[in-house]
Design a protein around this nucleic acid. Structure first.
Lengths: 347, 347
DNA sequence: GCAATATACTGAAACGTTACAGCTTGTCAC
DNA sequence: GTGACAAGCTGTAACGTTTCAGTATATTGC
């Protein structure tokens, strides 16, 4: 009690950015009161509340993130975890923009956490969880039995997956209905008379590989068309590999007269392969491809496309994580995006 | 001195992640000592230092970012500021990956700060600076007289620009030599006999618009070719607009027989426009385009391309900001990437 | 008139870190 | 033996926030 009363003298002098202390000094209130007034706590008088909030707005008070984070553990950060090599270009930018749109008027920041081919995909997740670096996580390249989802579920950290899992565990996700896409694609090809179809699928191991393959084969038997095996490559393979492999298969006697492709870049390679073999798109063979930007029709107008909106996916995923953080039931934060029609070029 | 010794009792019980206090308890040292031992302070005994570091590694100690940030003001965050609408797809993902590569084994996190068309580009910068949210900033779409660069320079916050400024102020940047690109492109077109060239330039206002235009016109007079005005569109315009405008100009009597295009997506539109006008790429007209991924040759093998490596740009920019943060002279952190040869398709 | 209760506010402590100003202990010079 | 000094360590305070446990004043019940 005999400690010298160190006249807290920095209130007016420091030109640094305002803190609760600054506000307390200006309003003549205690720091606690200011803190509570700003978050509309019930035990603060209505007038005081308005007064504090007015002053806060006037001087542009912004809570110090580090202070909040240290005290509460809340980071106000959403982390988007990305594979450095394999993610599709447009996927990355669109998803980032989608997420950004949603968190724009929240206190959340988006941090991008990359991991490389060589790493265990679980590594970045472990890092995030162990260091408590994010309130929520978004992952892609989801697997049916996804260790990352399981891990986060165990630790109770909110996350959303791009793509579904199949572990009997419930968590938020957003997914494109690739079963419907593949099935629609096959039906469309059958509709224009194609009977021998090949599928360039997503990489084995990812959940949507299964969805795509199932949609493809189910529709195949539905329309009575047959499959030309093309599973030595996936959309994860290099342009070169896909192109070569396509050329190979197109030079065979029993070549396909239709392709279904799960990614736009891969489709470019397929078309190149087709033309390498001296065949013509639209005449000898038709290709239905997913795309996430409107470029394929500029490439070859004979292409048949189905659009997948990654920006939407980003938004949905962000909404899902925020929802979970906000206390919503994980099961209520799942969404499936239905593919549109297969569309041909229109002059 | 008579204060009751509140037997700090949580040392062993709390299973949360280890802090300096945990380490202090385990090693029998004081918190201060541990802190300094971990950062190799000279006044800590060599053995103690090793001992502390060993234990820290063993139990996987990671400094709490919020604690550090609150105490020191250091955020260990680099912010990449992006335009939500206009940035080119591949640009975003590649640059992010480039940055990621560099900061991977540093304590830095990458946060993406977007801003939309409607906003003042200065807004996100102000936010970052005012809230002290980042130790360093990377911006793109740099202008000759860039208010963002000026602002950050005034506040003394380290940053790097993708593209140069022209304000007589020195700061780190990375740029692609677009003057050289445009000039080389013109020379190449002249070399294959093209005489009437059009340029699809970057948007007016950005620094590299000027560079590109200058390289174009300088080389034009060097080789004695002439320019077909094409400045009602830029690579920022929509695919539709560029395509229409190209078709228009290609239907004129005095149509160009060569194009120089500053972006791959725009080139797709140019080619579409050319073909809309019933002309043929490689026969009636040649197009030299920058590209950042290897896709253009799949699109039309007649295209002539120059590669720009955005991943490299990301790395260089990250290195530059980190360098500045680390105390290097801003003037020493500038780099210019020279364009490679104009390359034609090789079977 | 007095206890009980509600209303509106407040100070202290804590989150994990680092900077500052000590405090011991040992060594050395003389 | 004493003073000076260095080496090696430590406690306290502070960064800005929120939570806990109050306190002071007014209001109510009876």
């Amino acid at each position: 009690m005999d400690k010298h009363q160190t006249e807290k003298d920095d209130e007016t002098s420091a030109p640094g950015r305002p803190t609760l202390k600054t506000l307390a000094f200006m309003t003549g209130l205690g720091v606690t009161t200011v803190s509570r007034a700003l978050k509309d706590a019930p035990e603060i008088g209505a007038e005081t509340r308005r007064r504090v909030q007015l002053v806060a707005k006037q001087i542009g008070y912004r809570p110090n993130r580090a202070g909040v984070r240290l005290r509460t553990g809340k980071t106000n950060v959403i982390s988007l975890v990305l594979n450095t090599e394999r993610e599709i270009m447009s996927f990355v930018s669109d998803i980032i923009y989608g997420v950004s749109e949603v968190i724009a008027d929240t206190p959340y920041h988006l941090i991008v956490t990359p991991y490389s081919r060589s790493q265990d995909p679980l590594d970045p997740i472990r890092y995030l969880v162990e260091t408590g670096s994010a309130d929520g996580v978004i992952i892609s390249r989801t697997q049916p039995n996804d260790p990352r989802a399981r891990y986060m579920l165990e630790r109770g950290i909110p996350f959303a997956t791009h793509g579904r899992t199949d572990m009997g565990l419930v968590h938020p996700y957003h997914d494109f209905d690739n079963y419907a896409f593949a099935a629609e694609a096959v039906r469309h090809l059958a509709g224009v008379g194609r009977r021998r179809l090949a599928l360039l699928a997503p990489p084995v191991g990812l959940t949507y590989h299964g969805h795509t393959v199932n949609g493809f084969t189910d529709a195949l038997s539905e329309v009575g068309a047959s499959e030309v095996p093309f599973n030595t490559v996936s959309i994860d393979h290099s342009i070169e590999q896909i192109r070569m492999r396509t050329a190979q298969v197109m030079r065979r006697q029993d070549r396909p007269d239709g392709f279904v492709s799960s990614a736009a870049a891969a489709t470019l390679a397929i078309v190149a392969g087709i033309e390498d073999a001296g065949l013509k798109l639209g005449r000898d063979v038709d290709v239905v491809s997913k795309q996430s930007s409107e470029l394929l029709h500029l490439f070859r107008r004979e292409l048949l496309v189905v659009n997948e909106n990654f920006r939407l996916a980003g938004s949905e995923l962000a909404r899902a994580v925020l929802g979970w953080i906000g206390g919503a039931a994980p099961g209520s934060l799942q969404s499936l995006s239905l593919p549109g029609e297969v569309v041909a070029y229109q002059g």
